[in-house]
């Protein structure tokens, strides 16, 4: 089965991973900007990172028949540096017309602080000004519920935000329904220990339905599994779910969501 990984950090992965993903059916992916594992020192570091996301990675992916898209922002961890964040936000429009840019992301909260919320709101303004879709990171572990509620508060309070153009990622059992009930798209991240397993993701699909639900691997530089989406496909098959339902979650839904972006020009495989 062909699939689309809507959230994977390929700058952290090897070219061998692209080959493996292609062999397992991955034909498209989107890569949100995120934390490098250390705080970057200047806006120029982000400019180089955005060049990597908009120039180098699409070429690397294309060698294996994978269509690569991306999202730009300064992540929530580095948003504690408000001055640097504002410099990065000011620079982002330089890249918004690059052909693989889908929108602003992954913005969000990390420890649910005032600075993080301030920069989240400023990213929202940027997205609204440039009519961009938004991809949102929700915090880990004990901070997830509180942070997700805060993010929903900020989104709902702004009538200019169209919920159907916003993806709230890393939902779990205690946050998925709230996100979906407000009309947003929700992403489940299959990630060891701190997020969701394929089995629990299948449970959430069974309990919430497949409408506006996506699943991703978030493969990055930490302990993670870039081939996690095929693990969900296998789990759903083992439970007896239809191929049509599985395809909706791993292929049709991401394409439907991304199709709202002016730069999304996905070519279906023959």
């Amino acid at each position: 089965m062909y699939y689309f990984d809507p959230h994977i950090h390929m700058v952290s992965r090897t070219t061998d991973d692209y080959e493996t993903l292609a062999k397992m059916g991955c034909v498209g992916m989107s890569e949100p900007a995120f934390w490098a594992g250390f705080d970057r020192g200047s806006v120029e570091s982000f400019r180089d990172y955005f060049r990597q996301l908009t120039d180098f990675e699409p070429k690397r992916a294309a060698q294996y028949g994978i269509q690569h898209y991306t999202w730009l922002c300064i992540n929530a961890k580095e948003a504690e540096n408000v001055e640097l964040s504002r410099e990065v936000i000011k620079m982002i429009p330089e890249f918004l017309e690059k052909p693989n840019v889908l929108g602003i992301g992954e913005i969000g909260l990390n420890k649910n602080t005032k600075n993080e919320a301030t920069i989240f709101l400023e990213h929202m303004e940027l997205a609204i000004e440039y009519n961009q879709q938004i991809l949102i990171h929700t915090p880990h572990l004990a901070d997830k519920y509180q942070g997700t509620r805060m993010i929903l508060d900020m989104l709902i309070a702004d009538s200019r935000i169209e919920p159907s153009r916003v993806l709230v990622d890393h939902v779990e059992e205690h946050t998925a329904k709230q996100v979906l009930d407000q009309g947003f798209w929700a992403g489940m991240t299959l990630y060891p220990v701190t997020k969701c397993t394929p089995q629990r993701a299948a449970d959430i699909i069974e309990m919430c339905g497949a409408e506006r639900l996506l699943v991703n691997s978030a493969g990055d530089w930490g302990p993670s599994k870039p081939t996690a989406v095929p693990d969900l496909i296998l789990e759903m098959r083992r439970r007896g779910h239809s191929e049509a339902l599985i395809r909706k979650v791993v292929y049709d839904n991401p394409i439907e969501f991304f199709s709202q972006s002016q730069n999304f020009s996905f070519t279906h495989p023959e």
Partner: peptide, 15 residues
């Protein structure tokens, strides 16, 4: 409520 949902809330900071 589901047990998984209750466990998640138990280990969550208060909103």
């Amino acid at each position: 409520q589901t047990k998984a949902g209750q466990i998640q809330m138990l280990f969550s900071r208060v909103y």
